[in-house]
Simulated assay, not measured.
Amino acid sequence: MGGVVGKGDSPRKAWVPETKLEAKMVEAMQRRASEGSTMKSFNSIILKFPKIDESLRNCKAIFQQFDEDSNGAIDHEELKRCFLKLEISFSEEEINDLFEACDINEDMGMKFNEFIVLLCLVYLLKEDPAALQAKSRMGMPNLEATFETLVDAFVFLDKNKDGYVSKSEMVHAINETTAGERSSGRIAMKRFEEMDWDKNGMVNFKEFLFAFTRWVGIDDIEDEEEEGEEKV
């Protein structure tokens, strides 16, 4: 693939968010990006996979608690009750937006990996005291650190701090890690394609999270038995 790999990069300087929720996500990310990232390389993100994986799998109990009919998915009404229980103050519109954003298969139910993405977005978007209390009510002290690591990883990749990761930013991040390896461009492209769900050439935080659940193998724990062999 051609194209110049630049540090400042994206040819489209002002990427327009498609939804109000995405705009909030991007804004929150830009704010975080201004604080910088503790990550030093793409490898340092990969090294954290096992710990993140373990922490995210511990969310299964919460997921099951809110999946009241135990059908393996949280529907719209269950999600509303979930927010009520956690006393997170979201408006009806915000809940709808979050549900639509995270129900990536559009099957009107949130699977476990979609629920993890939702929790992480709630973490990113709600930094007021009430939300902090809700997080502690979930009873998962490790989860906050895990979400913070994911935010940090995204900020590391977002070199120009615009709230999105572009293809050339991904290539740049992986080139830093695998300097001189001929395959590094291919690896970067593959990773980027795995992240860019809507194929618009830019990756927002939500898309990054979905790719992440896939990378650590959470994207369909329930289907593992049927598939036999887990995708790497």
Results as ranks from 00 to 15, higher is better:
Met1Ala: 08
Gly2Lys: 10
Val4Pro: 04
Val5Ala: 03
Ser10Ile: 05
Lys13Met: 13
Ala14Ser: 12
Trp15Met: 02
Glu22Gly: 05
Met25Tyr: 07
Arg31Val: 13
Arg32Ala: 10
Ala33Thr: 00
Ser37Phe: 11
Ser37Lys: 10
Thr38Leu: 13
Thr38Arg: 09
Thr38Asp: 03
Ser44Val: 01
Ile45Phe: 04
Lys48Thr: 05
Lys48Tyr: 00
Lys51His: 08
Ile52Thr: 00
Ile52Arg: 02
Ser55Gln: 01
Leu56Ala: 07
Arg57Met: 11
Lys60Met: 15
Ala61His: 01
Ile62Gln: 12
Phe63Lys: 05
Phe63Leu: 03
Gln64Glu: 14
Phe66Pro: 05
Asn71Ser: 09
Ile74Asn: 10
Asp75Pro: 08
Glu78Thr: 09
Leu79Ser: 09
Leu79Val: 06
Cys82His: 00
Lys85Glu: 14
Ile88His: 00
Ile95Gly: 09
Asp107Val: 12
Met108Trp: 14
Met110Cys: 07
Phe115Glu: 03
Phe115Pro: 08
Leu118His: 07
Leu119Thr: 12
Cys120Tyr: 07
Ala131Thr: 10
Lys135Cys: 10
Met138Pro: 08
Gly139Tyr: 07
Glu148Ile: 02
Glu148Cys: 04
Val151Met: 04
Asp152Arg: 10
Phe154Asn: 03
Asp158Cys: 04
Asn160Ala: 02
Asn160Tyr: 01
Lys161Val: 00
Asp162Tyr: 00
Tyr164Thr: 03
Tyr164Asp: 09
Val171Ile: 15
Ala179Gln: 01
Ala179Glu: 12
Gly180Met: 14
Arg182Phe: 14
Ser184Gly: 07
Lys190Gly: 11
Arg191Ser: 12
Asp198Tyr: 14
Lys199Cys: 04
Phe205Arg: 01
Lys206His: 01
Lys206Tyr: 04
Phe208Ile: 01
Gly217Ile: 08
Glu222Gln: 11
Asp223Tyr: 09
Asp223Gln: 08
Asp223Asn: 13
Glu224Asn: 14
Glu229Asp: 09
Glu229Leu: 10
Val232Trp: 09
